[in-house]
């Protein structure tokens, strides 16, 4: 479901390419703080995981299926900057080696799927983490809410880009309504799967969940005296 060549005109494609390049450059600097010298191998494997997770389709009704975008999921699991890098690399590999998503639309795809979903998903997640009780069980619902918000926002932004550089005389209000409604449904699927995946990782390896680190740091080691029976 990536944007192909020719969907948006050349100036819009180039402009989103510049935005994507700038954001990836910022992420390159910032990701070093999230992973330090281990960045490349781990981010590479997280990217591979995101790609594999995107292969799973789920039905969204009317005989069609959507698949996970994984922006919010990657942000909560690996940290937002690493997530931007991972999704950008996934989209790059898909465009160059799998003919999925046009090469001129690569900037658009990275901006929408790699940056907007990660930014929205992470922002909602951090906000909820601050509001909700500081318990590990709250990480998964917060991640799900981030995922739920990220998909329709990306769809609306796509509609905005379509309004600027779209090559079709379509009624924009209708497109916006259809995109928003449709992607809210996809967003629910994305939210449920993101929440469940995060919950399962939090249950087994909470130390690997980047979004759970502040909560783990607050936990104190409790020692109890064993009463001999």
């Amino acid at each position: 479901m990536h944007v192909p060549d020719g969907f948006l005109d050349a100036p819009t494609s180039v402009a989103t390419g510049v935005v994507a390049a700038a954001a990836v450059a910022v992420a390159l600097r910032a990701a070093r703080h999230e992973l330090d010298d281990r960045t490349a191998p781990r981010a590479g494997l997280v990217a591979t995981f995101v790609f594999a997770a995107q292969m799973i389709n789920f039905p969204v009704g009317a005989g069609t299926s959507g698949h996970l975008m994984g922006g919010a999921l990657a942000a909560v699991l690996a940290g937002p900057w690493t997530a931007v890098l991972c999704l950008a690399v996934v989209l790059l590999v898909q465009a160059l080696l799998m003919a999925d998503g046009g090469i001129t639309a690569l900037g658009t795809n990275i901006t929408l799927i790699g940056i907007v979903t990660v930014a929205v998903g992470w922002a909602v997640f951090v906000l909820l983490r601050r509001v909700l009780p500081k318990r590990l069980e709250m990480v998964a619902p917060a991640a799900a809410a981030g995922a739920l918000a990220s998909v329709p926002v990306a769809a609306l932004l796509f509609t905005g880009l379509f309004a600027i550089g779209g090559n079709a005389p379509v009624d924009l209000a209708a497109v916006a309504t259809a995109m928003f409604g449709w992607h809210t449904v996809i967003g629910i699927g994305e939210a449920v799967i993101t929440g469940l995946v995060v919950a399962s990782v939090v249950a087994t390896r909470p130390d690997l969940v980047h979004g759970a680190r502040p909560l783990i740091a607050e936990r104190e080691l409790v020692t109890r005296k064993v009463v001999p029976s």
Partner: peptide, 24 residues
Amino acid sequence: RSPRHWPVLARSLGALFIRSYERG
């Protein structure tokens, strides 16, 4: 593919993430 089995699917994906990360 069925939403009824999403919890199982999600646990598998969680395991896949842990395995991928640890492989990294």
